[in-house]
C-alpha cells in the first residue's frame, strides 16, 4: 500500500499512455510540493480526500501519483506534515541554491516520477 499521494489536476501532469506521473507534477512551488498521507486509506477514502482538495480549485483531481515515503526519502526529500487540511503535508528538501538549480530539482522530480504509481479516476 502506498503511503503518500500527489493529486493531479492537470492532464499534462501525467502520461496516460505510459502510465506515469510526469516530473512537472512533482516540481516544487515555493520550495515545497503539496502531498497527502494516505496510509491505511482505501481507494474510496483517497478519492474523497482528493475531492475535498478539488473543491477549492473548482474541479476534482484527474488522478493521483502514489508513492512510498522511502521513495521520497531516497531522493533527498522529507515529508513535513501540517494537517491543514487533515493528512496534508509538503515534500521539502528540494535543492534551493547553487548552480544548475532547476536541473537538480528536475533530477529529483524525474527520479520520483520513475518510482510513483499513476492512479487515474
Amino acid at each position: 500500500m502506498a503511503e503518500r499521494a500527489r493529486f493531479l489536476f492537470q492532464s499534462n501532469h501525467f502520461s496516460k499512455a505510459n502510465e506515469i506521473v510526469r516530473p512537472s507534477a512533482f516540481l516544487p512551488r515555493n520550495g515545497e510540493t503539496s502531498v497527502f498521507d494516505i496510509v491505511d486509506l482505501e481507494d474510496a477514502d483517497i478519492r474523497s480526500v482528493g475531492d475535498d482538495v478539488g473543491v477549492a480549485r473548482g474541479k476534482p483531481p484527474k488522478g493521483r501519483g502514489e508513492f512510498q515515503y522511502d521513495d521520497a526519502e531516497s531522493v533527498g526529500l522529507a515529508f513535513e506534515r501540517d494537517d491543514i487540511p487533515p493528512r496534508h503535508g509538503n515534500l521539502v528538501g528540494w535543492p534551493d541554491d547553487g548552480s544548475e538549480l532547476k536541473a537538480r530539482q528536475k533530477a529529483v522530480a524525474v527520479a520520483l516520477s520513475a518510482r510513483a504509481v499513476l492512479v487515474l479516476r
Partner: peptide, 11 residues
C-alpha cells in the same frame, strides 16, 4: 509530451 512546469517553463 508537452507540459508546463510550476514556474511557467515548457516541459
Amino acid at each position: 509530451e508537452i507540459g508546463i512546469d510550476p514556474d511557467g517553463e515548457i516541459a
